[in-house]
Amino acid sequence: MEVRTIKVFTTVDNINLHTQVVDMSMTYGQQFGPTYLDGADVTKIKPHNSHEGKTFYVLPNDDTLRVEAFEYYHTTDPSFLGRYMSALNHTKKWKYPQVNGLTSIKWADNNCYLATALLTLQQIELKFNPPALQDAYYRARAGEAANFCALILAYCNKTVGELGDVRETMSYLFQHANLDSCKRVLNVVCKTCGQQQTTLKGVEAVMYMGTLSYEQFKKGVQIPCTCGKQATKYLVQQESPFVMMSAPPAQYELKHGTFTCASEYTGNYQCGHYKHITSKETLYCIDGALLTKSSEYKGPITDVFYKENSYTTTIK
């Protein structure tokens, strides 16, 4: 009895394709271990004539594949690729409408935090270190965002349907971005203890939790000093293409032309909904596939993004 075979390709990165001759009487799992086709788990399936010449994702289970996976995804987590594939199996079914010149995501599976993050990423200057993220990001900007969303979920250790947080998501993504040249110098002034300067680099240099107003941050924000008295913390120097200011959701007025974009969060910790506000020729609110415009805006804002380049204080 002759062994019926077909020729397929296996890959971990969709760049390096490895030619395989597979036995049609055995499952993919018996031949390769966990195997995925377009995100779908085909591990328990036997090869079919229609699979001839198709590319299958496999887990990096030998040295060659491990090197290829690390170079593309910059992670050695053995569960990463499987999590990416199972997320992709959902995100490829989502709709990605162009809204006001940006790629958004039609609401499904509690994905409003991903839509808000995706919209924000198209408006701030950011370059990702893992080629996987950078490639998928370019495709997302062009309207094909399924891979990018699935990668975000995998890097953030999230599953489809789980509630997510924009600030946490951005923080994970910033860790995989090139923020080497970003720098922030802060000064804390206390009447009792004097003053202390701190220099922050990388992710810490672009994120701040405690106030939404970048102007206020430049002037000074009140913080408790270690001595128990009130101290003032203010920005001395900022070198970065953008800054992200966050605070627990509270009524906040966004003035046209003073910011790049913002995240609105309605609801409580267990259950809520994100919308995205962007400042173009007027203010726009993007909620999944829905767009509304207004000249002014007041609502429960939790993150505001500002364009920056270089700032030095005039406070002496």
Rank of each mutant, 00 (worst) to 15 (best):
P300Y: 14
G194L: 01
V185T: 08
L173K: 07
F305G: 00
V203T: 08
Q175Y: 02
I315S: 15
H256P: 14
P241L: 03
V8F: 02
V236F: 05
K127L: 06
H48N: 12
T159M: 11
A115T: 12
A262T: 00
A150D: 01
T11L: 05
I315W: 15
F80Y: 06
F70M: 14
L151V: 02
F174E: 05
P130K: 01
L151M: 05
T211K: 06
C156M: 12
T35M: 14
W107I: 04
C182H: 01
G272S: 08
G257Y: 11
S181E: 12
Y96C: 00
S79E: 00
A231K: 06
P47T: 03
L121P: 04
S310V: 14
L65N: 09
T169G: 05
V203E: 07
R167F: 06
Q237P: 00
T10I: 12
L88H: 03
Y138P: 11
G257R: 07
C227K: 01
V243I: 08
S263T: 13
F70W: 08
T11W: 05
V3L: 13
I315V: 15
S240E: 00
Y113R: 05
A132E: 03
G272Y: 06
Y306D: 06
T198E: 10
P78F: 10
L81H: 00
A146F: 02
A140H: 03
K218Y: 03
K95G: 09
N14Y: 03
T19R: 11
L118T: 04
L59Y: 12
I15A: 12
G194C: 03
F128P: 08
Q196G: 06
N14W: 09
C112L: 07
Y113L: 08
A140S: 06
L59A: 12
I315K: 15
L133R: 04
L254M: 09
L81S: 02
E2Y: 10
G220K: 03
N129K: 14
E125Q: 14
F9L: 10
N111L: 04
N157E: 07
A289H: 13
K219F: 02
T76V: 13
Y311L: 13
I277Y: 05
D287N: 00
Q270D: 15
F9I: 06
G39H: 09
V188H: 07
V203P: 14
Y214A: 02
P300V: 12
D38H: 11
F148D: 01
P249M: 04
A136N: 09
L283T: 08
T10A: 11
S86A: 13
K183G: 07
R141C: 13
T278A: 10
T192L: 09
R139N: 12
M26F: 10
E264M: 05
E296P: 11
E296C: 13
A250Y: 04
A231Q: 01
A115K: 06
P47D: 03
D41I: 12
P131W: 04
T211D: 03
L151W: 05
K46P: 10
C271L: 15
Y137E: 07
V58Q: 10
Y138S: 14
H276W: 15
T314V: 12
M245I: 03
G202F: 02
G101F: 10
D303W: 01
K316N: 15
K307I: 10
S310D: 14
I124R: 06
Y208N: 08
E168T: 15
L179S: 08
L290S: 15
L290T: 12
K54S: 12
G272N: 01
K201P: 03
L254P: 02
Q98F: 15
V58T: 10
T312C: 07
A108C: 12
K233M: 15
Q251G: 06
N178I: 05
K316F: 15
A154E: 04
V21P: 10
T302F: 03
D287L: 01
V188M: 08
M24D: 07
T11N: 01
C190M: 03
Y28I: 08
P60S: 07
F70K: 09
Y72M: 10
N49I: 12
H176L: 13
R141D: 03
P241A: 10
A150E: 00
Q195G: 07
L37Q: 12
H48P: 12
K201S: 12
M24P: 14
Y36G: 04
Y274M: 02
S263I: 14
Q195V: 15
T232D: 03
L291K: 06
K298G: 05
D180T: 11
Q31I: 12
A117D: 00
N309L: 01
T232G: 02
V21Q: 12
A250C: 11
E162D: 15
F9H: 14
N157V: 04
L235V: 09
T192R: 11
G228T: 02
L126F: 15
N178W: 03
L212G: 02
C225S: 01
V8M: 14
V58G: 08
R184Q: 05
T282G: 13
L173T: 05
Y113A: 05
V42K: 07
T27K: 06
V12C: 08
G228C: 02
M85W: 08
T5Q: 10
Q20K: 15
S213E: 06
L114G: 03
G29Q: 09
V58K: 06
V42N: 10
T10M: 07
E204C: 07
K219N: 10
E264Q: 09
T199R: 07
Y306M: 00
T292N: 07
Q196E: 10
V21H: 13
V99W: 11
F32P: 06
A145W: 02
Y96T: 06
L121W: 07
K201E: 07
I152Q: 02
R66I: 09
A247P: 06
C182K: 02
S246W: 06
N129G: 08
S246Y: 00
Y252G: 02
K229V: 05
Q237I: 08
T19M: 14
L126T: 01
L179M: 06
T159F: 08
E215A: 06
A87E: 09
Q222W: 06
P34L: 10
